[in-house]
Every structure is written in structure tokens, then in C-alpha cells.
Amino acid sequence: MTDKITIVPCGRESISKIVDGINQYNLDRVPALSDIWTPLEYIAKNENGEEIGGVLAGIGYWNGLEINIIWVKDEYRKKGIGSHILKYVEDIAKAKGATVAMLDTFDFQAEEFYLRNGYISIGEIQNFPKGHKRIYFSKRLDL
């Protein structure tokens, strides 16, 4: 059967078909608890209006907060701004019904930061990138 299959790059319409297909498959098995995706995307500004940090996250249809990126400008790191941004998005997610937060990071990025903020390591990929590790974290928001 695989002899007659071709694989080609996706266009916008094909991407939608893939996303819609997996969403339908998933929702046929486990009903959604919330909208398919509720974006939680915020920028932090200093007193001069300069953008110094931010978060790109969202709540999926089973009420999980998925944190994709948290960033703080170099000169503002280690001053509690990242923790403030993280708590801000967690609080909004909890108010919207999120029960768990999840994310991944690398050992050279923010491993200790997430541990200090109550996250637990739930898995890792060793030697990716070479000489480092990718770490997956989770935190219960409903406790």
C-alpha cells in the first residue's frame, strides 16, 4: 500500500486538514472541556514602555496551560520578572479553568527557574542538543 503514497510539502489548506483531522480524532475519544485553543500571550514593559519580557502560551481543549515561550531581556533577568510573568499567566489560566501547566526547556535555559517556581521534571532527552538535555516540566494548577 505505501508504494502508491506520495508525500509532498504542505500548503495552508493541507495544514488545516491535518490540524482538523487530529482535533476530530482526539475529540471523538475525549470530549473538550474548553475552546480548542485560548491564546494567553502577553508582553511585559518597563516604566519607559520598553518591552523587556513576555510569554506565549495558551489553554488547550482539556484545560491544560501550554507554555511555549517565556522570555526576559538579558539585563532584566534574575530580578523576579520571569517569575512575575509566569505567575501572571498561571493565574489567568487558573481563572479560565486550567488545571495543569506544561512546558519544555533546555538545561542551559531555565531548568532551575522552573524548579524554583514549583514545576516538576516529568522527563528529559539526554544529549539534545549535544552535551545538553531537553527537559519537560509540569505543574498542577488546581491544588
Rank of each mutant, 00 (worst) to 15 (best):
T6P: 00
Y136C: 08
K130Q: 12
G64Q: 15
K78Q: 10
I52K: 08
T99W: 14
K133Y: 03
L115C: 07
A110D: 08
G53E: 01
N23W: 11
G82C: 04
Y42N: 01
I43P: 00
E90M: 13
F106I: 06
N117Q: 08
D104Q: 10
Y88P: 00
G53K: 02
I135G: 04
S83C: 02
I122T: 11
I120Y: 06
L86G: 03
K45S: 11
S121Q: 12
K94N: 05
N46G: 08
G58Y: 02
V8G: 01
S14L: 10
K17P: 01
R134L: 06
L56A: 12
E75A: 14
Q109H: 14
K4T: 08
E13F: 03
N48F: 11
I7P: 00
Q126W: 00
V89I: 15
L103S: 05
E75F: 12
Y119M: 00
G131P: 07
Y25C: 07
T2E: 10
K79C: 05
V89P: 00
Y88A: 02
P129M: 09
V72L: 04
V72Y: 09
D74A: 15
T6H: 08
T6R: 14
F113C: 07
L27D: 14
I120V: 10
P39N: 00
G21E: 08
A93W: 09
G49M: 13
D91H: 03
D35F: 02
I92R: 15
